[in-house]
Design a protein around this nucleic acid. Sequence first.
DNA 1: ATAATATAGGACCAAGTAGTCCTTATTGCA
DNA 2: TGCAATAAGGACTACTTGGTCCTATATTAT
Lengths: 209, 209
Amino acid sequence: MIRIIGIGVLFAMAGRPREFDVKAARDAAMQLFWTQGYEATSLNDLLSAMNLSKSSFYQTFESKHVLFEQCLARYEEILICTMREGLATAPNSLAFIHGVLTDISNETRDPQGRRGCLMMNTAAEFAQSDPGIARCVKAGIEASQKIFAEAVATAQVDGDINSKASPQALADYLVTTVIGLKTQVKAGASSKRIKSIAELSVVALQRMT
Amino acid sequence: MIRIIGIGVLFAMAGRPREFDVKAARDAAMQLFWTQGYEATSLNDLLSAMNLSKSSFYQTFESKHVLFEQCLARYEEILICTMREGLATAPNSLAFIHGVLTDISNETRDPQGRRGCLMMNTAAEFAQSDPGIARCVKAGIEASQKIFAEAVATAQVDGDINSKASPQALADYLVTTVIGLKTQVKAGASSKRIKSIAELSVVALQRMT
DNA sequence: ATAATATAGGACCAAGTAGTCCTTATTGCA
DNA sequence: TGCAATAAGGACTACTTGGTCCTATATTAT
């Protein structure tokens, strides 16, 4: 039974309480999708990783596909939050940009393996065939591009970036570089190599027309 | 029956000749793998695209997996040959580099769809789980990096690139940018956007330290 | 003619897929 | 005490997967 309390607030009536944390379960699924991809992750894989019975799974999450959409959204949320936080706490905007790029070199040591970026992996696996997913990926890219644009704008004010090009254009360049670097990680490039490409890219950014 | 003629040359004895072109069939498979990915391409998809019966397929190609490896190798061969040719015929090395990057913007109009790069798609889908495939992808990247390094070296001699950085490092930067751009295409970026990022990247290359 | 090969087509297989349904037990609130 | 919800687990469905095998037919060189 479901009661309506106030406006639009749903309150489920008594009954045995859920024994697992929905968010934690979904995060576990996200990790798995991230490392294995959508198709390669079977329902059984998910049940094991989420530590759920099939019954509980389908009662809580509509389907594998819906769960994946939620995972992708969550991934993007984390990504954007992390970037926002990084930008807010960095000594200056250029340092933030520099950090984002060079930190990618550490992803070669991820104990979970060289997973790349869930958004990009998803784009590769899906984007063509699933318009909903494609929209979600695009939104994630836009969002991160926006943060980069902010950072670039203030770095221009700081005098750390001399280019007169629009922050949007330079942000596009940065997003592209990040994508390239993360894919390089996935393709097996060494940490050292990734790092030097990142350094080179930042220097290039500072010297653009 | 099989006869041995000369040293190591095998000659299959008479019988009904093959009615299809093995290379053409394999190329058709390559196109399909490129647009759909490995897992998403079923055996029936392949049989239709290659216009083969199951019997003929398995008689000629060992398995779906082996065929895929051949397709990947073929893709890389074409990629490298095209680059070599481009470098040889371009008015100068910088023009070649510029062309490779900016031409990516046209891939948004590919009638086959925004397919990205088979090597990268494969890296995303496979690289972690299949060491053989991973090696093949890595080799392809190395090869294209080498061509870029050649181009950079002569562009430095030409005075079109002022950077004193090693051609290898700059080539790494270029490969990363190409990967990023192609992935952006797949993620839905506009042709115009891709083009301006490419232009920006080339300018950046010329002005590096 | 015969051997050797290729053809198409279909039967078949074992395994895996996502997802539904049902039973039985458990837990908390009213 | 009884209602409502969750839990685990298994049976089950309908379908797809890559792959093997077999039959019958066609085509070639010897």
